[in-house]
Design a protein around this nucleic acid. Structure first.
Length: 261
DNA sequence: ATGGTCGCTTTGCGA
């Protein structure tokens, strides 16, 4: 089975690229973030025509997560136990489903904005609550995939000096990420895509992609029963290339993981 | 310190 995660930055404006990506790489399950589409706005036709079903949740102006699968979508869960919300807004940033016998979670970790912003505390709270919930799932095949909005190591940042006072690299955020590994989850993409200079996100401006000045913030964390099935992983940087495909690209590249049966 | 570029519930805001 081949699964993938991709922050698409609007499913509607990117649907042609998404469908081409599914076909090009023969994807079985795609976890999507930043869909920016309500249930009634989901572009379903091309996906259904290609044999995919979709489960989506949590739209506001910036968010929205979904799971696109051609190996079934069962037992869909929106959010996880005790998931905190921000400012009373409906911010379902997590959707889980059983796809081909694997529980896949599409995660859009809160950005955090600025260190002194309440959104930063919310991010750490959110991650802590997810970790508590996820620690109960380690005996099952579980994948926690998505946009983690954390660069776990200095190598995951094109220029640490530029992030001296920024979120995504602070010790509490990195500790929150490490806590998942301490719970038994394995980040399965890095061993197959070693750095340096390997990223999954590049800002739109200042030609950051063309100069490969990016961040590695999209990951796939697998529980022990699933991690042992991983046979490979890669980052499809072509999907971030404005010179390739139709229309403007997302600012994130998809991350693909292969699993044995 | 600032600005650059995307998307959208667009003339502001979050990323």
């Amino acid at each position: 089975m081949r699964i993938a995660t991709w922050n698409v930055n609007s499913l509607r404006s990117r649907i042609d690229r998404v469908e081409a990506f599914l076909e090009r790489h023969d994807i079985d399950v795609l976890a999507v973030q930043e869909t920016k589409a309500r249930e009634d706005q989901l572009p379903l036709m091309g996906l259904h025509a290609r044999g995919y079903d979709i489960a989506a949740a949590g739209y506001n102006q910036w968010n929205g997560v979904a799971i696109i699968s051609r190996v079934g979508i069962e037992d869909v869960t929106v959010g996880f136990p005790d998931m905190p919300e921000f400012d009373g807004a409906s911010e379902a940033r997590a959707i889980g489903a059983l796809c081909g016998g694997v529980r896949i979670w599409s995660l859009y970790v809160p950005n955090g904005r600025k260190i002194d912003d309440p959104h930063y505390a919310y991010k750490l709270d959110w991650l802590g609550k997810l970790r508590t919930a996820a620690a109960e799932w380690t005996d099952q095949p579980v994948a926690l995939v998505g946009d983690w909005n954390i660069a776990p190591t200095d190598e995951d940042v094109f220029d640490m000096a530029q992030f001296a006072t920024s979120t995504h690299v602070t010790p509490p955020e990195r500790a929150a990420f490490q806590a998942f590994l301490d719970s038994g989850y394995a980040e399965v993409t890095r061993p197959h895509t070693p750095g340096p200079d390997v990223y999954t996100y590049w800002d739109y401006y200042r030609q950051r992609f063309e100069r490969n000045r990016g961040l590695r913030i999209d990951f796939a964390l697998c529980s022990p029963p699933l991690a042992s099935r991983v046979t490979g992983a890669f980052i499809d940087t072509d999907e971030r290339d404005p010179a390739q495909g139709t229309g403007s690209p997302s600012d994130h590249a998809p991350v693909i993981v292969d699993l044995s049966d």
